[in-house]
């Protein structure tokens, strides 16, 4: 037996279409329930499509992070605090990536405590801007805000294309963007601190 036919009010019409006042009500009711039937279909496809993979992936990465121990990345935070041009990529690309990956949103921002005050806003800006680009490949980092990426990715799936290309490009462009963001915010912060002093 097809369970869809059991869904309230949406059974196939086998008699004349109702007309008059009651008929209008009946049509209205059918239109009303159609919204939720459609929504239910979408819900089921999301639950069946994304959730199983997500749960397994979340478990694996959570276990990995627990086994390694989040405190291991503290040395990286200390390294990123060093001045000089060659530490910029560490501070605004590598450190945000690693802290968002290991500590996830929002604990990733605690890595800012290893940096001097003048770098903190820039690091926050850089790290917070990375909590979405990472979602395409590592959804464990920010599962509560998954739909920033999944919303758009669903459209791509519907067209029948693979998501790998989009996910990788999103991650890479995200890295470039957080790097630029970090540098610019650092410059603006320095200017404003000078003005304030």
């Amino acid at each position: 037996m097809n369970f869809n036919s059991l869904v309230l009010l949406s059974a196939e019409a086998t008699v004349d279409k109702p007309d008059g006042f009651l008929g209008a009500l009946a049509t209205g009711a059918e239109e009303f329930i159609k919204i939720f039937n459609e929504g239910g279909k979408v819900f089921l496809s999301l639950m069946g499509g994304i959730l199983p993979t997500l749960i397994v992936l979340l478990t694996a990465v959570n276990a990995l992070v627990r086994l390694i121990g989040p405190e291991k990345i503290e040395n990286l935070g200390k390294a990123a605090a060093r001045p000089g041009l060659r530490w910029y990529p560490v501070r605004y690309m590598l450190l945000p990536f690693v802290s968002v990956f290991v500590l996830t949103n929002p604990m990733a921002y605690t890595m800012g405590r290893f940096l001097p005050e003048r770098f903190k806003p820039a690091f926050y800006d850089s790290a917070v801007s990375f909590v979405h680009p990472i979602l395409g490949i590592f959804p464990h980092a920010n599962p509560g805000e998954l739909f920033v990426y999944v919303g758009i990715a669903t459209g791509i799936t519907q067209l029948g294309y693979g998501l790998g290309d989009l996910a990788v490009r999103y991650l890479l462009v995200g890295l470039v963007v957080i790097f630029i963001r970090g540098i610019l915010t650092e410059v603006i912060t320095a200017r404003m601190m000078k003005k304030g002093a």
């Binding site: 929002p106 604990m107 921002y109 605690t110 890595m111 800012g112 405590r113 940096l115 005050e117 003048r118 903190k120 806003p121 820039a122 690091f123 926050y124 800006d125 790290a127 917070v128 963007v177 630029i180 963001r181 610019l184 915010t185 603006i188 912060t189 404003m192 601190m193 304030g196």
Partner: peptide, 26 residues
């Protein structure tokens, strides 16, 4: 987020507008 990074209140005061203005460009 800045408080999680143990930033001083003065840094927060500067950091909020700094990030917001930076976004306008980035």
């Amino acid at each position: 987020g800045l408080a999680l990074g143990e930033a001083e209140p003065e840094t927060v005061e500067v950091g909020v507008p700094a990030v917001l203005f930076s976004r306008l460009v980035t």
